[in-house]
């Protein structure tokens, strides 16, 4: 059952990305083009997603435990540090150059556009590079004991 819900969540997520316009790099770049031909419409994507998720996530997290898992796996990180800002800045530059962030890139990869495929391959390479450089697998992510324990789960 856990696999089915995760699959359905992925499916719904992809449809949301497609409907919202996030899978169209030209639209994303237009949104980031503050000093050119700015197209603010994608703000509505963030607004819609956060409005829905903020309400339901709070209720879910207050409910004790997930349906098909022993506990909620949230990050234990709370500190705003240089690593967070540097990583987000690098990501943002790549996002601005390509108009692609990880979700839309994976969703769009099924259309087999060469530029997108090159991006996805490089993205996976960048992820692997980080893992290799840090020399650790993702297995520390359930370590909740220490704030310094670097959970690999975002946010």
């Amino acid at each position: 059952m856990a696999r089915l819900t995760a699959f359905l969540a992925g499916l719904l997520f992809a449809l949301g990305l497609g409907v919202s316009g996030m899978t169209q790099p030209a639209k994303v770049v237009g949104f980031l083009d503050f000093f050119g031909r700015w197209d603010p419409s994608l703000i509505a994507v963030l607004f819609g997603a956060v409005a829905v998720h903020a309400v339901f996530a709070r209720r879910a997290l207050g409910s004790g435990r997930p349906w098909y898992a022993p506990r909620f796996e949230l990050t234990s990180l709370t500190r705003v540090d240089a690593r967070l800002v540097a990583g987000s800045a690098l990501f943002g530059v790549g996002w601005g150059i390509s108009g692609l962030c990880p979700g839309p890139a994976l969703v769009s990869s099924v259309a087999f556009v060469p530029t997108t495929l090159a991006f996805v391959a490089a993205m996976l390479g960048g992820i692997a590079l980080f893992r290799v450089m840090r020399g650790d697998p993702a297995s520390d992510q359930t370590v909740q004991a220490s704030v310094e324990a670097d959970t690999t789960e975002p946010c």
Binding site: V93, G94, S98, P102, G126, I127
Partner: peptide
Amino acid sequence: AGLLVGFGTQ
């Protein structure tokens, strides 16, 4: 861009 996105997000 892909390398930056991959590495940066991690």
